[in-house]
């Protein structure tokens, strides 16, 4: 049994994506884009508290610049596809890397969030589809009026199962973001014994802000603080 030397060939770009780290970096970059979107999206949504005129004007503004709107949609779609492709490939790779599991499994010491990335991802993905059908295309049979997000949200969230599903999805999103956010820094090589703990705290703050901000809307509707 000899240990043979190995030569490394292949085009750099191919090699980059072939390596698990390459895929991880793709996930980090696309994840960051998606995070940026979610943040902007939330800031847009929070305008609901400023009344129907404000948020509907914002919606009309977005639709009046199709280049921005469709540009963003294309980028987001590409990011989502790459994010999901890479994650599925990594998931398969990782399953292959440990073909026999332990009789005695012990939970790794890391937080709950890191271990739930795998299924929080698909659930959030499914939710996003539902969310688009509900509030972008209006094709799930819930009350929908073109370019009137205020009305759509208020009427949509009055149905409590809809609100509940939104709230649950946002909890998962927050956890997904918490691990994803600090982990993307680690993945692209930013790690410092002094700053990484702060990064984790910052990631938690952002994750909570996004989760809580989004959840506040259905809660506000159900509680009757926001109404037609």
């Amino acid at each position: 049994m000899s240990t043979a030397g190995v030569s490394v060939r292949g085009e750099p770009a191919v090699r980059f994506y072939e390596a698990a780290i390459g895929k991880k970096i793709v996930m980090a970059v696309t994840g960051f884009i998606l995070f940026g979107y979610v943040l902007v999206h939330l800031l847009g949504n929070l305008q609901i508290y400023l009344g129907p005129e404000q948020i509907n004007a914002y919606a009309r503004f977005l639709h009046s610049t199709p280049l921005l709107l469709w540009g963003a949609r294309v980028v987001l779609l590409a990011a989502v596809i790459l994010h999901i492709t890479a994650s599925v490939q990594l998931w398969l790779l990782n399953r292959r890397a440990r073909p026999v599991s332990y009789v005695m499994e012990k939970d790794p010491p890391a937080g709950y969030a890191s271990r739930t990335m795998l299924w929080s991802g698909p659930i959030i993905g499914a939710f996003v589809v539902f969310h688009i059908l509900h509030l972008t295309t209006g094709s799930v049979g819930l009350p929908y009026r073109e370019l009137d997000p205020y009305h759509n949200m208020v009427y949509g969230f009055r149905i409590w199962p809809v609100s509940l599903s939104y709230i649950l999805a946002m909890v998962l999103l927050a956890m997904h973001l918490y691990h994803g956010l600090w982990s993307m820094f680690q993945t692209v090589g930013v790690h410092h014994p002094r700053y990484t703990p702060w990064l984790k705290r910052l990631a938690a703050a952002f994750a909570i802000f996004i989760g809580a901000g989004n959840i506040s809307i259905p809660v506000a509707v159900l509680a009757g603080w926001v109404r037609e």
């Binding site: 049994m1 030397g5 030569s7």
Partner: peptide, 13 residues
């Protein structure tokens, strides 16, 4: 040198 092919290694031998 193993990678260069000059040394061949025989572990567990």
């Amino acid at each position: 040198q193993v990678a260069a092919g000059r040394v061949t290694l025989f572990p567990r031998t």
